[in-house]
Every structure is written in C-alpha cells, then in structure tokens.
C-alpha cells in the first residue's frame, strides 16, 4: 500500500482522461449522477477472475441506482480499446496514461513501486463528494458488494431529501 486513498466526505478531485483516441471524459461530466470509479492495476487479467468482466455483468445493478461506472488504469487508450472489445465491456475505460497515474495519485491510489493504479474503489455522489472508498489488499478482487451498499445508502439519503 503506497499511499492512503481519499476518504468519504472529501470532494473528488476532477480529472480529464482519454476514453478513446479522440474522446476524453471528465469526472465533472457526470455531475448529477452517482459515479463509481474502479481503479485497477492492468488490463488483461484472466477472464473468469477479471474484476471488469464481473462488473460488466452487474451493470444493470449499478444502472438501477442511475450510477455510471468508470474503469481506470495506466494502460494506454489502444490497449483499453482492445481489452474492452475482447471482453465486450459496456462502460468506459479511462487511460491514466499521461502524465502517468496522475488521476490515481490525486485519489491517493497509485502504487509507486509497481507503477500502476492500486485496486481501489470510490463511490461519488451526485454533487461530486466521495461517499465511500475501498482499497483492496494485493491480489484480492473486490466484488460489487461494497459499491452496492454505498449506492443503497445514497438512494436512502436522496429519498430523505425529497420527502417534505
């Protein structure tokens, strides 16, 4: 564990990263919706145990909360495209490629020793504040349980605001 990841209550630092060779995405673009950031070390882990392949099957669960999932690693945009196409991923993979790992660093989730993103998750509310974060031990994929619990709490709190 190289750095300490940003904790709930902190405003998520904005970033703009390439999603395709000619398209970039900023965190601020999703203001008004919950955002799930899934930072991970590298594309191309074995398919059955691949965190992104598992999340891809669970997109409906995230969409029920109106949440947008963004995958982030230091892999370049062409690598992401090949990986997403191979695994038929239906959510954006962002390239934290240049300057390398800058977005991950701003979330305290960069592994300096190995030069990759930590396996870290952030759930960000509609206003851009981190409401849940999680750093996985090396070698252990986080499932979606923590994400779904955080989204459930967000839904609970937004319902409370709407009530007269």
């Amino acid at each position: 564990m190289s750095e300490r990841i940003l904790k709930p209550g902190v405003v998520a630092p904005d970033f703009r990263l390439k999603a395709t060779p000619d398209q970039s995405v900023a965190l601020a673009d999703f203001r008004g919706r919950p955002v799930i950031l899934a930072l991970y070390p590298a594309d191309w882990s074995p398919v059955c145990s691949d965190q992104m392949a598992v999340y891809n099957e669970l997109l409906d669960e995230f969409h029920q909360h109106d949440a947008q999932l963004l995958g982030i690693s230091v892999d370049g945009v062409w690598c992401h495209l090949a990986f997403a196409s191979n695994r038929k991923l239906r959510f954006p993979l962002l390239a934290d490629f240049e300057p390398k790992g800058a977005a991950a660093r701003s979330f305290g989730a960069y592994d300096n020793e190995n030069g990759v993103c930590e396996r870290a998750l952030f759930v960000i509310d509609r206003e851009g504040t981190i409401t849940w974060s999680h750093l996985s031990p090396i070698g252990i994929n986080p499932g979606a349980d923590g994400i779904l619990e955080a989204l459930e709490r967000l839904r609970g709190s937004s319902l409370a605001e709407v009530r007269p």
């Binding site: 145990s49 598992v54 252990i140 994929n141 986080p142 979606a144």
Partner: peptide, 9 residues
C-alpha cells in the same frame, strides 16, 4: 452474488 461480493468464477 453481486450483493455477496462475488469477484470472479
């Protein structure tokens, strides 16, 4: 499985 934290098969 999603609620339980399934992280691969």
């Amino acid at each position: 499985g999603a609620l339980s934290g399934v992280n691969g098969t």
